[in-house]
Design a protein around this nucleic acid. Structure first.
Length: 212
DNA sequence: AGTGCGATTGACT
DNA sequence: GTCAATCGCACTA
């Protein structure tokens, strides 16, 4: 079973429909795996920006490395919304990054989106960043946020709303084999294998587990 | 009130 | 390989 939509005949643009909340697993780790290969879309004034999610990290309940670990604050409150809402935060005083909230309302959990394989709006993404290589556009959480015009104004939006400008869609094409390894850049809980990625995809950052 | 540091990136030795 | 940029929050006092 999968939820791929057929590629439209005589078209090179795949049909992508909005994911509905009941389709999302109610568990941070399961949702992280589920989101690999799905589409992240931001409809902006200049047009549609979209990409395939090819790398993501789970920050589940009880994880000391998670922003939600110490309970809700003004900054992280979006992590406590029902699964499928955007949590956008500012990191290192420099970069915006986004999570998809991942548990029931009132429970904190999130999925950090770390890599996108661009689908639509590549020209606009190139304008949003000064780029020399294609992979520099959306490889890494800070880069993809800049390319996709993701900032604080999107924090708390429902990614499953029927009319949201910022939303999750079905996969544009079948997802490749999924690898699992440790998360990037953590001091606490660094050993846990909670990073999921599409193997072989050039928009995946950080170390990858070797295939044995 | 002050300090340290972080789910990163880009520039530079 | 090293390191600065620069904001919010946890923690100390």
């Amino acid at each position: 079973m999968n939820d791929q939509m057929p590629i439209a005949a005589h078209s090179h643009v795949p049909v992508i429909r909005r994911l509905r909340r009941p389709e999302l697993p109610v568990d941070t780790v399961e949702l992280t795996r589920y989101l690999i290969g799905k589409t992240l879309v931001h409809d902006v004034r200049e047009g549609r920006l979209s990409g395939r999610i090819v790398e993501a990290e789970a920050y589940p309940i009880g994880d000391a490395a998670a922003h939600a670990f110490r309970g809700p604050t003004v900054r992280n409150r979006s992590l406590f919304l029902d699964r499928g809402h955007a949590y956008v935060f500012f990191n290192y005083g420099v970069h915006w990054m986004m999570n998809v909230s991942s548990e029931k309302a009132g429970v904190g959990g999130g999925v950090l989106i770390r890599g996108l394989d661009p689908l639509e709006g590549i020209r606009q993404m190139e304008k949003n960043r000064s780029v020399s290589h294609l992979t520099d556009l959306t490889k890494g959480p800070g880069r993809l946020a800049m390319a996709m015009q993701i900032d604080k104004s999107l924090d708390g939006l429902d990614l499953c709303s029927l009319h949201s400008e910022f939303w999750l869609g079905t996969a544009a094409k079948p997802v490749g084999e999924i690898g699992i390894t440790t998360r990037v850049g953590l001091s606490r809980e660094a050993h846990r294998e909670l990073r999921f990625y599409e193997q072989g995809n050039p928009f995946v950052s950080g170390p990858r587990k070797l295939l044995l």
